[in-house]
Design a protein around this nucleic acid. Sequence first.
DNA 1: ATGGTTGATGGTCAA
Length: 262
Amino acid sequence: MRLVTWNINSVRLRFGLLAQVVERLRPDVICLQETKVVDELFPADDCRALGFPHLAFHGMKGYNGVAILSKRPLTAVARPLRCDKADCRHLVAEVDGIEVQCLYIPAGGDVPDPAVNDKFAHKLDFVRELTTLYATQYTADRPVILAGDFNIAPLETDVWSHKQLLGVVSHTPVEVELLTRMQASVPFIDAVRHIIPPEERLFSWWSYRSPDWTRNDRGRRLDHVWVTPTLQDRLKGAEVLRDARAWTQPSDHVPVLVDIAD
DNA sequence: ATGGTTGATGGTCAA
């Protein structure tokens, strides 16, 4: 199974780029975040025409939104977490006996203090809630993939400057610690770092606000694919499609790919 | 410390 995750930042605006991703990477399963569209307006027919007859999507007006596109049948579709907030950040489906979870963890706003910033508090709560879910209901022998925009860069090599980003939301110690705890809950294997050594700098997001994203390469690795230990030996490859950041009218995130042996 | 850009929206808000 070839799985791609991508924060597409509007599935309607960038459907043409999605077609390019499909043509270039030939994925079997695609997890999308920030689709930014209500379910009634989701481009389902276009997805089917692209070769993905099996769809699950969960969106709202203007913000958030997650989707799973699949060439193979999707079963047991669920929307387990935080939907009481109408957030549309978590979608679960089963493909070929593997549970695929599409995740969009809140970005968390600008100020990394839950006492003064509700968005940061929500982010921390969201990660804690996921951790409880996995710690209580999941085990290492259950085949599960978590894929999505986690909005946290855990390693020093996941950011352009560890020191300069210690106080910046996405790389603060409290976020990294909570994400590490979430990873340890089952535990999950970081599939991309299993293939690409942790010593190597690796980014999947570059801010729109930089006039030239290539100039200083000030990126962060916010997009992740994790698997349960039972899938570890089936990990065959991983790639971050850095080139996609240079496409015309790009998303600020690029697609991340993982190959898992059938 | 601040500003910088983008997308959905039709005010701003979120990222």
